[in-house]
């Protein structure tokens, strides 16, 4: 059983238990701040996990992943404003549009490598950002408040904080499980092989482009779901959700937590958002602490926090 109770697994279990029990603690102490803070952690953790599917496992460093957060939110918000309040229409529509956007971005960007890939994904996300700014009817630069959260009939009420929290939690766990199955499947091995040595992959008979494109789309759709959740949660959409700085935050979460594992980015999201929150109480210059921290991870701990935990031996 020593394989099960490694420091890393204990830590992961602790984080999950903590996240699972958070609403109980918040209910007992009537602490609404913590509740909404951790709802955001869950949603952004989901986004970071989806980014890591293409970045950590597929070697596709997308610098425009926040675009899907924004697009998912905007599709939901626009439909809500136009009177379509059913989540059964809003959510699939948002995921579909995110998938199509990813298909377009991927079809172009995956023909390039390295810096060019990063630049094209960045360019597309900035395009989405400026389009959102130009949408005067939907708030333009200022964004737009959303009057009603998605409606799913009588049984489901997204206005209930605790319910919303657990919905995010369950969707996060589902994402973790899905991505974990995915990266270990035949499909996942092709993606990982292409990251490691694409030339060789082609030489042994894999047409790698189509696999990478499908992976890119899957990641976009998952992040789109996070976007719908985020917009529902904040009752607000706003172009800055897809600003390149947000994309950068997602990359930082994945790198900080560890790109080598499915759960790494979740740990990174928890750590990053907590650090940001705590530091903001002491200083306006959080970057002064976060920057060197990230530098240390890049220089000395390539596996991120999860990598450090995995390296620890018991006792």
């Amino acid at each position: 059983m020593s394989g099960l109770f490694t420091p890393r697994n204990v830590m992961v279990a602790a984080v999950l238990v903590l996240l699972a029990l958070m609403p109980v603690y918040c209910a007992l102490t009537a602490n609404t701040f913590l509740m909404s803070f951790f709802t955001r952690v869950l949603i952004l953790g989901m986004a970071a996990i989806s980014l890591n599917l293409i970045m950590g496992f597929g070697g596709m460093v997308s610098f425009g992943h926040a675009a899907y957060l924004g697009i998912g939110g905007y599709v939901f918000g626009i439909l809500a404003k136009e009177g379509v309040t059913s989540g059964l229409i809003q959510w699939p529509a948002a995921l579909l549009i995110c998938g199509l956007f990813a298909l377009a971005v991927g079809a172009l960007s995956l023909r390039t490598r390295g810096v060019y890939f990063i630049m094209i994904t960045l360019a597309f996300s900035q395009m989405a950002y400026y389009i959102a700014i130009a949408l005067d009817r939907y708030g333009g630069d200022d964004g737009m408040a959303i009057q009603r959260r998605s409606q799913f009939g009588d049984l489901v009420n997204l206005n209930n904080r605790t319910f919303f929290y657990y919905l995010c939690f369950v969707l996060l766990l589902a994402t973790v499980y899905l991505v974990w199955r995915l990266v270990n499947s035949r499909f996942g091995l092709v993606i990982q092989g292409a990251r490691s040595n694409e030339r060789r992959m082609r030489a042994i008979g894999f047409p790698t482009f189509r696999y990478k494109l499908v992976c890119f789309v899957i990641a976009g759709v998952i992040c789109g779901l996070a976007g719908v959740l985020l917009a529902n949660f904040s009752d607000f959409i706003n172009p800055s959700a897809m600003n390149w700085i947000r994309s950068g935050d997602l990359i930082v979460m994945a790198v900080l937590g560890g790109m080598g594992t499915v759960l790494g980015p979740l740990i990174g999201a928890v750590a990053f958002l907590m650090l940001e929150e705590v530091l903001s109480r002491f200083t306006e210059f959080q970057g002064l602490i976060l920057g060197p921290l990230l530098l240390a991870v890049a220089l000395y701990a390539r596996g991120g926090i999860d990598g450090i935990l995995m390296g620890l031996r018991r006792g």
């Binding site: 499947s185 499909f187 091995l189 008979g205």
Partner: peptide
Amino acid sequence: ALAVQAHAGHSFRFWRPAREE
């Protein structure tokens, strides 16, 4: 095994752990 997989049909198989096949 990856080389074998390349010639064992398409790899749009998303669920089963490939290392155990």
